[in-house]
Nucleic acid binder design. Structure first.
Lengths: 142, 142
DNA sequence: TCGCAATCATTAACATGTTAAATATATTGC
DNA sequence: GCAATATATTTAACATGTTAATGATTGCGA
C-alpha cells in the first residue's frame, strides 16, 4: 500500500512555502504604495492586456471571481481602475486601468523587475525556466 | 533597464495556479470529512511529529500563528485535537491529536497517498523531485 | 413571445492570510 | 527581588480564499 509522503516532502506545503518566500520582498515593495499583492496583480494584468471583462481578468490574475469582485470594487473606490458597461451584453462589465493605476505600475516596475531578476539569478536562469515549466505541467490533474 | 516579466511567466502567479491545481483533488477528498486543507495539514503534522507547541506546529504546517490559533481552536471544539499546558513554561501550550483526529488520518491516508502518487506519476519521479528541490531553493531570498 | 435553461457576475457566509497590537509569562540585569 | 526586556501566544481588524446561493440578462425552443 502506498505511503503518505512526509510533510517535509509534501508538494502542497512546498508550494505554500515557496510562494511565501517569493512574495515577501514583493509585499515589502507594495506596502509603500498601500497595495496588496492581488491588487498589484490586477494592475499588472490590466496594464498588459488592456481593458478586460471580469472573468478574463480573474483568469489572468489567478483570482476567483468573488475575490476579484471585491478587489475591483475597492480599487475602483481608490481610483485605480474603472468599470464600463459592455456594449452589447449588459450582463458584462469591462474593467480598465486608470491613469492613477498606471502611475503605480510605472513607479514600481523597475523595482519589481529587479526582484524578479534576483529570484531568477538565485536559482540560475536554467532552473528558473525548468521550475516554470514543471509548475505548468501540473495543470489538468484529472 | 530590466523588464517586468509577462504575467504569463510570472513565478508568483505560476505558484498560485500550481497550488490550486494540486489542491483540487485533495479538497474533494477532504470535503467528505468536512475538513479544510489547513486542518488536514495540522492533523498530518501532529500525526507525524506527535504533540507540538503552537509555534512548531505552525512552522511544520506552513501556517502563520494567528491562523494556527483559530484553526486549532475550531479543531479542539470538534474534538480532533487537544491542548495541554507546558510543564515548565506557562506561556506555552502543547497540542496533540486525539483518537478522533487519528481516525480521520487513517480513513484518508490511502486516498491521499494515491493522489500524491498520481501527481508524482504525472510529472515523472525525476521531475517531481527536481520540483521539490527547486522550490526548496527559494528559501532565504535576501 | 413566452417561458426556461444557460451564462455572467455579484452577494453571502465562513475559513484563512496578513500585519499590528495586546496579553501573559520568563528571563535578565541591576 | 524588581524593573525592563524578551519570548510565546492570542486577539483584533481587514483582505482574500472558497463554496453555495442569488441576481440579472441573454438566447433558445415550443
Amino acid at each position: 500500500m502506498k505511503q503518505l509522503p512526509s510533510t517535509q516532502r509534501s508538494l502542497p506545503i512546498a508550494l505554500i512555502r515557496a510562494r511565501e518566500n517569493v512574495m515577501t520582498p514583493i509585499r515589502q515593495m507594495l506596502s509603500e504604495s498601500g497595495l496588496t499583492e492581488q491588487q498589484w496583480r490586477v494592475l499588472r494584468v490590466l496594464d498588459e492586456h488592456g481593458a478586460l471583462e471580469p472573468s478574463q481578468l480573474a483568469k489572468h490574475a489567478a483570482l476567483l471571481l468573488p475575490s476579484q469582485t471585491r478587489i475591483v470594487q475597492s480599487m475602483a473606490q481608490k481610483g485605480l481602475v474603472e468599470r464600463r458597461e459592455h456594449r452589447n451584453d449588459r450582463r458584462r462589465t469591462v474593467i480598465e486601468i486608470t491613469n492613477a493605476g498606471q502611475a503605480i505600475i510605472n513607479d514600481n516596475a523597475a523595482k519589481a523587475a529587479e526582484i524578479a531578476a534576483q529570484i531568477r539569478d538565485k536559482l540560475g536562469p536554467r532552473r528558473f525556466e525548468t521550475l516554470l515549466d514543471i509548475l505548468d505541467d501540473l495543470r489538468d490533474l484529472e
